Computed example of a mutant assay.
Amino acid sequence: MSNYLSKRPWLIAVAISLLLFIWLFSGSLFEAQETATPEQPAQKQGLAKVEIQWLEASPMQRQHLVQGQIEAWRRVELRAQINGTVARLDQDKGSVVEQGQLLLSLSADNRPAQVARGEADVRQRQADVTAATRLRERNLVSANELIRLQSELAKAKAELDMARIQLSNTRITAPFAGVYDQRMVELGDFVQPGQSLLTLVDISQLKVTAQVAQQDVSHLRLGQTVRVQLLDGGVMEGQVHFIAAAADSDSRSFRVEVRVDNPQALRLAGASATLQIQTGEALAHRLSPALLSLDQAGRHGVKWVNDQQLVEFTPVQLISVDNQGAWVSGLPHKVALITLGQGFVEPGQQVITQLAKEES
């Protein structure tokens, strides 16, 4: 055999080349098996993994939120109409009073005497006119004389009415039922016409005022129900009572008043509140506010994954927010929302998706 190979050296070279080829091929195959496994395909190495949740739009009531100010339904500052001294404080501050109830008394001075004199003068003038009328029927008094006496009677009645008004102005009464809120004078103070005496407020109803932007005022109508969110979390309901016919020249917004019943007489006047105004039905998605992010332009939006497994960012409009989540519009009807890992991916990036586990 050795003699045979020694005579044919080319056979030895062929055998060595064949052995070398088999060794190289087996090494390459082993390396390929190590770098590509069924569990981790080569084309997906290095891609970020995110969790997604499929959301579908549903109808909801669109809301417009605007900050407002709560005011008493009515508030009046009662002022003195005459000169006088504060003679009596008939009610205490904070008292609930009825319409017509006496609140404060000023000194009458000589006003009762003026009324008595006026009444006597009217009686005398009335007797003169009665007698002159009878005489005129018999042509014993001229027509001019009768007219003069009638004129004096009318003047006496006017003076009597003035004296009675002056006397009644010593009694400061409630023009409507409400709460005796403030008093600006004390017992014995001398007051003059126009001087403030006290304030009376009606809080059986409240008035919430707000300025609504010109692009939103068209959604409002008189009598429309509005939710009023208080600072302590409480909620009241009211109706649109007034919508300004013209916008404010500075802010270009319209004044709106909402009337709210307050049967418990809660002390809310002067506080702030948020008006939640329904502006029609819209299709929207409900999601956690934590999933909202900002793009480079500062717009609110969310990240989701399209059919090509690419990340997209879509700006959204925030319709309303409550304890359960946020309602947003602007997304496709059905969307694969990224619920975990959105902070580590950018729009246009290809990702691996995994359905989020549903909370039990």
Rank of each mutant, 00 (worst) to 15 (best):
V115K: 05
Y180C: 05
R148A: 08
Q114N: 11
L222F: 02
L65E: 13
S95D: 08
M162F: 15
V97Q: 01
S26R: 07
A213M: 14
D261R: 04
A265K: 10
V226R: 05
V258T: 00
I147P: 01
E358A: 14
L55S: 08
A42K: 15
R123E: 07
P263H: 06
H300R: 11
P332M: 01
G223S: 07
H219F: 14
E145R: 14
L197A: 02
R148S: 15
M184Q: 14
E34P: 00
L231P: 06
G330K: 03
S142I: 04
V122K: 04
P315M: 12
L310H: 04
R259M: 02
L78F: 06
V305R: 00
G298T: 06
A247Y: 07
E237N: 10
A127P: 02
G238T: 05
I352R: 05
M1V: 11
P347L: 13
A154P: 09
D248K: 08
G343V: 04
K93C: 13
A113D: 12
T274S: 12
Q349I: 07
D250S: 14
R62I: 13
S105G: 06
E145G: 03
V256E: 08
A36S: 00
L230K: 03
D295W: 10
Q150F: 08
V115E: 05
D181A: 10
A245F: 09
I338F: 00
T173F: 00
G100R: 00
L135P: 06
E186D: 10
T170Y: 00
V335N: 08
Q296V: 14
Q33P: 00
R299S: 07
A158S: 05
L220A: 10
I147W: 13
I70S: 01
G325C: 15
T170V: 00
L65D: 15
T199K: 15
L55P: 07
F313S: 01
G343E: 04
L167P: 00
R123Q: 12
S105I: 05
V351P: 02
G238C: 01
Q114M: 11
A42P: 07
R183N: 04
G348H: 05
G341S: 01
D250I: 10
G68R: 01
I52H: 02
V235Q: 11
A158I: 08
L167Y: 03
L20D: 09
V179F: 06
T199C: 09
I203C: 09
R267F: 09
D307W: 08
Q229E: 14
V201Y: 11
V316H: 00
T35V: 12
A244P: 10
Q63D: 13
P59Y: 13
D181N: 09
V96K: 14
S249G: 12
A72R: 06
P175R: 01
V122W: 08
V321D: 13
V328G: 14
M162Q: 10
L149T: 05
E34S: 03
Q114W: 04
Q342S: 11
T35F: 07
K49D: 04
Q224A: 07
R286K: 09
A127S: 10
A177Y: 01
